[in-house]
Simulated assay, not measured.
Amino acid sequence: MKQEEDILPEYADDEETIEFIKAYLPQELKAKFSDDELHYFIDLIDEYYIESGVLEGEPDADGYVEIDLEAVANYIVAEAKKDEMGEYDPEEILFVVQGEMEFGESLGQVE
């Protein structure tokens, strides 16, 4: 049971992230992505940050680490195609990536 308790808070965070992203998306994209797709995209965003080493980069003079959001969106599009999840428009996925980043900023996790 302990494992389930460890997983549930992370899942709850994903649910909050998904709700934030859905509110962030332009009107024409709000109904385009299912919650399952958004979960998948969030997992790929995390995967990109880990595998790319971007979070281990040196911050600039203001303490910021530069993250190329278009590269993240392109990564999601490529992985989704490879995983046979579907083909997505990188420009639409960019809104999801930006929404996830904005959510992190709203929590003070990202500066």
Rank of each mutant, 00 (worst) to 15 (best):
A71D: 09
L69D: 12
D83E: 14
N74F: 15
G57L: 13
G57N: 14
E58G: 06
V54P: 07
Y49S: 07
E51D: 12
K82Y: 14
M85Q: 12
V77M: 05
D83L: 15
D60R: 01
P90G: 08
Y48W: 11
I50C: 07
E79L: 14
A73C: 05
A78K: 03
P90T: 03
Y48H: 05
A73P: 03
E51T: 09
D62A: 15
D68A: 15
V72D: 00
K81L: 15
V54E: 09
A61H: 07
K82A: 14
E66A: 14
P90L: 10
E47P: 08
G53N: 00
L69H: 12
G57H: 13
D62N: 12
I76N: 06
P90M: 09
G57R: 11
G57Q: 13
Y75T: 00
M85F: 13
S52T: 02
M85R: 09
I67G: 06
I76P: 10
E51W: 07
L69Q: 10
D62S: 14
P59D: 06
V65K: 01
Y49G: 11
G53M: 04
E56C: 05
Y49V: 07
E47N: 13
G63W: 06
A71F: 04
A80Y: 09
D83A: 15
G53L: 07
G86D: 04
L55E: 01
A78N: 05
Y64A: 10
E79Q: 15
E56K: 01
P90A: 13
E56Q: 04
A61R: 02
A78R: 02
I76W: 08
E56N: 06
E56F: 11
V77C: 14
D62Q: 11
N74M: 15
A80H: 06
E47G: 10
V77Y: 03
A61D: 12
I76L: 09
Y48C: 05
K81E: 15
L69Y: 13
A80S: 14
Y88N: 04
I76R: 03
P59K: 07
G63S: 04
G63R: 00
Y64L: 11
G86P: 07
V65Y: 02
P59S: 08
Y64F: 13
A78G: 05
V77R: 00
D68V: 06
G86F: 11
M85C: 12
D89F: 11
N74C: 14
G63C: 07
G63K: 01
E87S: 09
E51Q: 11
A73S: 08
A73V: 00
S52E: 04
E70H: 12
I76M: 09
V72M: 03
D83R: 11
E84K: 11
G63V: 02
Y48M: 03
P59I: 06
V72K: 00
Y49E: 08
D89K: 04
E58C: 06
A80F: 12
D83P: 10
E87G: 04
A78V: 02
D89I: 06
L69E: 12
P59N: 04
E70F: 15
M85W: 09
Y88F: 15
P90Q: 03
E84T: 06
Y75H: 08
A61I: 10
L69F: 14
A80P: 08
P59A: 11
V65W: 02
Y49M: 12
Y64E: 09
V77F: 08
V72N: 01
V54C: 13
G86W: 06
S52G: 05
E66F: 13
D60W: 02
E79A: 15
D89H: 04
